[in-house]
């Protein structure tokens, strides 16, 4: 592992550098993935650009009824500990608290987790559930991309060679909503998800009518993804016996997991169903508990 180290002091400076170096400079946010890849020789870089000095990207900001903006460099532990996040997107806080363990959560960043584009990214399912918007910046300007369009494949995103992820915006969902993220690993910590499933349930008025359901999954396909057909099973449905099971069954059909050192495809499919059922039950319970309209 040998490279030139770039340490821009501001986002503007970073974008100028990225314009010059393009793919030649790999972005270092937390380092928990990048440095491991570089040490293993799985990735080579002429230059590494550390964003550590860009304190301007380290923020969690409530934008009132619109939603929450999170700087790309906020660490997992800061996301997990944030009162704003805990109140408004508890499932995201839960997901970040399940990344590795304390040391990794202190180093790793929300932006890094997304840009690394691992199919197993823990932060992806909760953000997919909330239709998060990502601000990608370059010296040419900024653009906003929906998280659904961000991932292209394992370790591949829509980021152009001169772009840097600047901010993650989480729009505020309307109504009574409950969401959760469940991660399956062999151990209780230091795990890369065998399967991760997030479910969000929206209720309108009645505790028994689901106005909307969202299901997001990780480690089950080349990218984290939404299970749209599984979601449709719930939409505008009254809760009845077998509904959750049916949705889980359909969601599993939307996955295309592989067999690898962590688990076989068959077990992953089984576990999507299990986690989906459990997450749906928990999300439903949370939604029913959510009496207030909107976020406080």
């Amino acid at each position: 592992m040998r490279f030139e180290l770039l340490q821009p002091g501001s986002l503007a400076q970073a974008l100028e550098m990225k314009k010059d170096y393009r793919e030649g400079a790999k972005i270092l946010a937390g380092g928990t993935d990048l440095l491991v890849l570089l040490k293993d020789g799985k990735l080579r870089a002429q230059a590494v650009m550390s964003l550590g000095r860009l304190s301007e990207l380290n923020f969690i900001r409530s934008e009132g009824e619109r939603g929450v903006a999170i700087g790309a460099l906020v660490s997992h532990s800061d996301v997990a500990a944030s009162r704003i996040i805990q109140q408004r997107c508890p499932d995201l806080a839960e997901a970040c608290a399940q990344v590795g363990a304390a040391q990794i959560q202190n180093l790793g960043t929300l932006g890094g987790n997304l840009c690394n584009a691992s199919p197993a990214a823990d932060a992806a399912p909760p953000l997919l559930l909330m239709d998060a918007l990502l601000t990608l910046a370059s010296a040419r300007g900024e653009r906003r991309v929906a998280i659904h369009d961000f991932f292209l494949g394992p370790r591949r995103t829509v980021l152009e060679p001169d772009e840097i992820l600047k901010e993650i915006f989480v729009p505020q969902p309307a109504g009574r909503r409950g969401a959760t993220y469940l991660k399956l690993g062999r151990r209780k910590a230091m795990e890369i998800a065998i399967v991760g499933v997030g479910v969000a349930i929206h209720l309108n008025g009645s505790d028994r009518i689901v106005s909307e359901c969202r299901i997001a999954m990780s480690s089950v396909a080349p990218t984290p993804l939404r299970a749209r057909r599984g979601e449709a099973v719930f939409t505008n449905q009254e809760i009845r016996d077998g509904l959750i099971e049916e949705a889980a069954e359909v969601a599993a059909e939307e996955a295309s997991p592989i067999s690898d050192v962590r688990a076989t495809r068959g077990y992953r499919l089984d576990m999507i169903r299990v986690l989906c059922r459990r997450a749906a039950r928990e999300a439903l319970a949370r939604a029913r508990n959510h009496k207030a309209e909107g976020w406080r």
């Binding site: 363990a101 151990r187 230091m190 890369i192 050192v261 962590r262």
Partner: peptide, 11 residues
């Protein structure tokens, strides 16, 4: 040691 799994304190 990511994929060769020793018990962590939580196990």
């Amino acid at each position: 040691l990511t994929d060769y799994k020793l018990c962590t304190p939580r196990e």
